[in-house]
């Protein structure tokens, strides 16, 4: 029994499913590219961001938004994984995983890391296309980014797992889109700098500060330009650990209580 074989099996399955689901594959790439090619180009001349860290010169909007879109890919991938876990639970595959002869934390951790690795393919595919079309992609910074993407991917994936453990039915997943993904993305520094948010709205600025996604995006942004942002790294790591612990707790065995009544015939069907 080798735990690496178990991780490899989970990763292989995730990669097979990702490449077989062509709609998912293309939407994962098209979504951020659409934002880059349409939204950022459209707003390029409308926003004057000035010189803000980690950039050492006035930053064009399409360069600024790059880190946010990388974060967006990982955010959507984390939520896609959570959708996939809810689907797997309905289809029974989750039972198969959770009855494998390994500790739960290992099985969930393997699934989390596997989903994060899938997101890396999406991120680098996106950066490659952006570079080909002439957007300012720091090539060396993109390589340095790899360990950071693992951290941010694990944090967002673990958040998805926490949600998946709470969502009872696949139909409820639309709520995650409306109440988790979009608020996390828009109330962050993905589209606009924190300083500009503060100048416009104190409340929105505070929301952005407590939004874990903000720190993922800032960590990605600084790492792309070789700037160490320790506070962001600490927060991302802290949130990753917190969400992972909550996810493992969410998948703990269902506890049976003490019987206070015997079953009536109508209640038997629930057992």
């Amino acid at each position: 029994m080798n735990p690496f074989n178990t991780f490899r099996a989970i990763l292989t399955r995730d990669l097979l499913r990702f490449t077989q689901q062509r709609a998912r594959f293309f939407s994962a790439l098209v979504r951020p590219l659409l934002w880059l090619f349409v939204f950022s180009v459209g707003f390029r001349n409308a926003f004057d961001l000035g010189t803000i860290p980690p950039y050492d010169a006035p930053v064009p909007y399409d360069t600024y938004i790059l880190a946010g879109l990388i974060g967006m890919i990982q955010l959507f991938n984390g939520m896609q994984n959570s959708l996939s876990m809810v689907y797997d639970r309905e289809m029974g595959s989750m039972r198969l995983l959770m009855t494998a002869p390994w500790p739960r934390w290992f099985l969930l951790g393997a699934r989390l890391l596997s989903g994060t690795i899938v997101s890396l393919f999406q991120v680098y595919g996106f950066l490659l296309i952006a570079a080909i079309f002439g957007f300012d992609v720091p090539l060396l910074g993109s390589l340095v980014l790899l360990p950071v993407l693992l951290m941010t991917g694990l944090m967002l994936g673990a958040l998805g797992m926490v949600l998946a453990a709470r969502i009872e039915q696949l139909e409820n997943f639309a709520g995650v889109m409306n109440f988790v993904i979009f608020p996390m993305f828009f109330a962050s520094s993905a589209l606009y700098p924190l300083g500009q948010l503060e100048a416009s709205s104190q409340i929105l600025h505070w929301i952005a500060l407590v939004n874990p996604f903000t720190w993922a995006v800032e960590l990605i942004r600084h790492s792309l330009y070789f700037s160490l942002f320790w506070e962001a790294a600490g927060l991302v790591l802290g949130f990753a650990v917190l969400f992972s612990v909550l996810a493992v707790l969410g998948y703990a065995p269902k506890q049976g209580g003490s019987a206070t009544t015997k079953r009536s015939p109508s209640e038997r069907s629930t057992a």
């Binding site: 178990t6 490899r8 099996a9 292989t12 399955r13 029974g92 595959s93 002869p101």
Partner: peptide, 22 residues
């Protein structure tokens, strides 16, 4: 309830489960 992955082949399903067993 069936727990096979419908979009994978028989061999891929068996390989996946074997992997879960290490």
């Amino acid at each position: 309830s069936p727990t096979l992955d419908l979009d994978l082949t028989v061999a891929q399903n068996l390989s996946y489960f074997g992997g879960l067993q290490g």
